[in-house]
Amino acid sequence: KKKIKIYIENENGEKKTIEIEVEGDIDEIAKELAKKYNVKIVKIEP
């Protein structure tokens, strides 16, 4: 498992940072999160 930080922006332009532990393809997981929460991924840090 890797701990990563995902910087997101919602439709109101509010920026947030999510810190999660992931296993597998980080890009795939980030895309799923973006779709699920309707946010834009700004940056992903390993």
Rank of each mutant, 00 (worst) to 15 (best):
K1H: 10
K1D: 02
K1V: 12
K2Y: 14
K2R: 14
K2Q: 14
K2L: 13
K2P: 07
K2I: 14
K2F: 14
K3Y: 12
K3V: 08
K3E: 02
K3C: 12
K3N: 06
K3M: 12
I4S: 02
I4D: 00
I4K: 01
I4F: 15
I4Y: 15
I4E: 00
K5E: 02
K5V: 13
K5T: 12
K5S: 09
K5M: 09
K5F: 07
I6W: 01
I6E: 00
I6Y: 03
I6N: 00
Y7R: 04
Y7L: 10
I8G: 02
I8M: 14
I8E: 00
E9W: 04
E9V: 09
E9Q: 07
E9A: 03
E9I: 13
N10D: 13
N10H: 13
N10P: 01
E11L: 12
E11R: 11
E11N: 10
E11S: 12
E11H: 11
E11I: 09
E11M: 11
N12W: 14
N12S: 08
N12T: 09
G13E: 02
G13K: 04
G13A: 03
G13V: 00
G13P: 00
E14Q: 10
E14Y: 10
E14L: 11
E14C: 13
E14A: 10
E14R: 07
E14I: 09
K15E: 12
K15G: 10
K15Q: 14
K15I: 15
K15N: 09
K16C: 15
K16F: 15
K16Q: 12
T17Y: 10
T17I: 14
T17N: 03
T17W: 14
I18G: 00
I18R: 01
I18E: 01
I18P: 00
I18W: 15
I18V: 06
E19K: 05
E19M: 08
E19R: 03
E19D: 07
E19A: 05
E19Y: 11
E19L: 08
I20T: 03
I20W: 06
I20P: 00
I20K: 01
I20A: 05
I20D: 00
E21G: 04
E21Y: 14
E21L: 09
E21M: 10
E21S: 08
V22I: 12
V22T: 12
V22D: 06
E23F: 12
E23K: 06
E23C: 14
G24M: 03
G24R: 03
G24I: 02
D25I: 04
D25A: 04
D25W: 04
D25T: 05
I26Y: 08
I26G: 04
I26L: 10
I26H: 04
D27W: 14
D27I: 10
D27N: 11
E28G: 06
E28Y: 07
E28Q: 12
I29P: 00
I29S: 03
I29E: 03
I29V: 10
I29R: 04
A30R: 05
A30H: 02
A30L: 15
A30V: 15
A30Y: 06
A30C: 12
A30S: 05
K31H: 07
K31L: 12
K31M: 09
K31I: 08
E32S: 10
E32W: 11
E32K: 09
E32Y: 09
E32T: 06
E32P: 00
L33H: 01
L33C: 10
L33M: 09
L33Q: 00
L33S: 00
A34W: 02
A34E: 15
A34T: 06
A34I: 07
A34F: 03
K35F: 04
K35C: 07
K35S: 05
K35A: 06
K35L: 08
K35V: 05
K36W: 05
K36H: 08
K36I: 08
K36G: 03
K36T: 04
K36L: 09
K36E: 08
Y37D: 14
Y37R: 07
Y37M: 15
Y37Q: 14
Y37K: 07
Y37P: 11
N38M: 06
N38W: 04
N38K: 10
N38G: 14
N38I: 02
N38P: 13
N38A: 05
V39G: 15
V39E: 05
K40P: 04
K40F: 05
K40Y: 04
K40Q: 11
K40T: 14
I41Q: 01
I41E: 02
I41F: 03
I41H: 01
V42S: 03
V42E: 04
V42W: 01
V42K: 02
K43I: 10
K43Q: 07
K43C: 10
K43G: 10
K43E: 05
K43H: 11
K43W: 14
K43V: 08
I44G: 02
I44W: 12
I44K: 01
I44C: 06
I44M: 06
E45Q: 06
E45N: 02
P46H: 14
P46F: 15
P46G: 09
P46L: 15
